[in-house]
Amino acid sequence: MPESGYYAKRPRPQHRDYLRRYLEARDVVETVEELDDFRLVVRRRGMSGVRVYLTNSYEIGVADVEEILAEAPETTCIVSTMDYNHYSSEAKALATERGVGLFKAVEFLGAVYFDGEAFLGYLSPAQREALRGRSSS
């Protein structure tokens, strides 16, 4: 049966479950609580909790960040559940300015080890390598 756009923004259950399982396997994570299809609360040892908003939007732009934060103002992190999805640099800058992390799922799994500015500014090893490559050119 066709989905009729049901998962255009909504995270697929199997992707949400995958992310939850991987978070729970991290030593830094105490608990992961699912509030609904879109929201998780991640409690971490010795660090602040993270209120995650999950999305399956193909490209997260400024309007998406605004919409998510209007709908769920308690959000401290927006995570795209699919690694082929992406976000604009403007959306990342707006989220960071508002004190909200914006990540792909794989990036979030690395960022979860950090707090504060290090969390917000987290770059995956691939992103760090790409930056090194640009700076040496």
Rank of each mutant, 00 (worst) to 15 (best):
I60M: 07
R45Q: 07
E90M: 01
G121N: 15
R10F: 00
S48Y: 06
K92Q: 04
D37R: 02
F103C: 10
V42I: 15
A25W: 10
E59Q: 03
L35N: 06
V62I: 04
L40G: 12
A126S: 12
P2C: 01
S124M: 09
E107T: 05
T55Y: 02
V62R: 12
A91N: 09
N56E: 06
F119I: 13
E34N: 12
F114Q: 13
P2K: 04
A25V: 07
R45S: 13
R26C: 08
Y113Q: 05
Y113I: 01
E97C: 10
Y87P: 01
M47A: 07
E3R: 15
G46W: 05
E129I: 11
E66N: 04
M47P: 11
L109D: 04
E30T: 09
P2M: 03
R21W: 14
S136E: 14
S137C: 15
S80F: 03
Y122A: 13
C77I: 09
E34A: 13
E24G: 12
A25M: 10
G110R: 13
G49Q: 14
Q127C: 00
T31G: 08
M82R: 09
V50Q: 14
D37P: 02
V106D: 04
L23W: 08
I68D: 00
A93T: 07
S136V: 15
R39Y: 06
R45I: 07
Y58K: 02
N85Q: 02
N56R: 09
H15E: 07
E24K: 15
A111W: 12
P125F: 03
V29E: 03
A95V: 12
L19G: 12
Y53M: 08
E90I: 00
Y113D: 09
L123C: 07
R39W: 05
F108G: 12
E97N: 15
E3A: 09
L123F: 04
E74N: 05
R98V: 05
A105T: 08
P13C: 05
D17F: 05
K9T: 01
F119C: 15
Y84P: 03
G46P: 09
S48C: 06
S57V: 00
S4W: 10
R51K: 15
R21P: 14
G101W: 08
L23G: 10
E129P: 09
I78D: 03
S88T: 12
L131M: 10
G5I: 04
E34T: 14
S48G: 14
T81N: 03
G110Y: 06
L19K: 14
S80K: 04
